[in-house]
Computed example of a mutant assay.
Amino acid sequence: MSDLLANDLITPDAGEAPLLAQADVSILKAVPVTRLSYRGREGSLKAAGKAFGVALPVQPLSNSTAPKRAALWMGPDEWTLLAPEEELNAVFEAIEKGLGDTPHALVDVSHRSLAVIVSGAKAEWLLNTGIFIDLSLEAFPVGTVTRTIFHKAPVMLWRTGPDTFVVESWVSFMDYVSGLLVQVGQELAAA
């Protein structure tokens, strides 16, 4: 399912030059998307997923995708919901209407974060210079999503393909995160 997402929602921003383009690793800015933070109890999940267009995952470190939709598990009662940028109002209103009086929290955090796509044969290696988790395909399979730290910056890491990752960071940290990734990538090329 994650490959579907990589092809229709988290895509390179065609208006931006690659941050790094090498034979074995690339870093591309992703197009802006709608990001909603959803918090709710178990009784609200089915209705929220139906209104959003994809079931909310209940397994830690997992995601659910459908065309132009992704729901990422962030914690026992927290999800990040992704949709095309232009669908913000429609998605927000559909979830609010679908839940009615059911207690929940739905917050638009679209402008809080940016994402880059790190891909290539050396993507794991590049990310492991600042993320100290085993990113091998066996330990961190396609579809796995987690919050973690890249050097000193909080990030969300999502493996969307065998050699492709989405790295999301708050806007205020993205220059730091992407700058370090590019710097290490350039050192790799010089080695």
Score class of each variant (00 low, 15 high):
K97R: 09
A6Q: 03
T102H: 12
G75Q: 12
N63Y: 00
E138C: 08
G15L: 12
W170F: 11
A105Q: 15
A121L: 15
L106Y: 03
A190G: 04
A6T: 04
K97S: 03
D24M: 07
L99Q: 02
T11M: 15
P60R: 09
A189L: 13
E86G: 10
A190K: 14
A153R: 05
T160W: 01
P18R: 03
L188K: 00
G98C: 12
E87V: 02
P12W: 02
T11N: 06
F173N: 12
G100F: 04
V118G: 05
M156F: 03
F165L: 02
G43K: 08
E124T: 15
E138K: 14
T148K: 08
A191D: 07
L36P: 05
F150I: 10
A66F: 10
V155Q: 09
A66C: 14
V25P: 00
E16H: 14
R69P: 07
L137F: 02
N7H: 13
M1V: 15
G53W: 12
L19T: 09
P12M: 08
D134L: 11
L82M: 11
L56V: 11
V145I: 07
A105C: 04
V166R: 00
D175M: 13
V33H: 05
A55F: 01
E16L: 08
G49W: 10
D3Y: 06
L72G: 08
V116D: 03
L106S: 06
V182T: 13
Q59I: 11
L56D: 11
L126P: 05
A71D: 13
W170V: 07
A17C: 01
L188N: 06
S178C: 07
A191E: 08
Q183N: 15
G161S: 09
A47R: 14
P76M: 03
A189I: 00
L82Q: 07
A123T: 02
E124V: 14
G100I: 03
Q22P: 00
E87A: 15
Y38L: 14
R69G: 11
S119F: 00
W73L: 07
D134S: 09
E42K: 11
M1S: 15
L19K: 12
R159P: 01
E42N: 04
T160Q: 14
R69N: 13
V118P: 04
P76C: 02
L28V: 00
W125H: 12
V167A: 09
Y38M: 07
P162G: 14
T34Q: 02
T164F: 00
I131G: 07
V58Y: 00
A121R: 08
A55T: 08
I117Q: 06
V107Q: 03
V91P: 03
V166F: 01
L157R: 06
L56T: 10
L127M: 12
Y176R: 15
E93Y: 02
W125I: 06
P67L: 07
V155L: 05
Q22V: 00
A70E: 07
L56K: 13
F52D: 06
G53L: 08
A14N: 05
D108E: 12
I27N: 11
Q22W: 02
G100W: 06
T146S: 01
V166D: 05
L81W: 07
W158E: 10
V33T: 14
P141V: 10
F140K: 02
P18I: 08
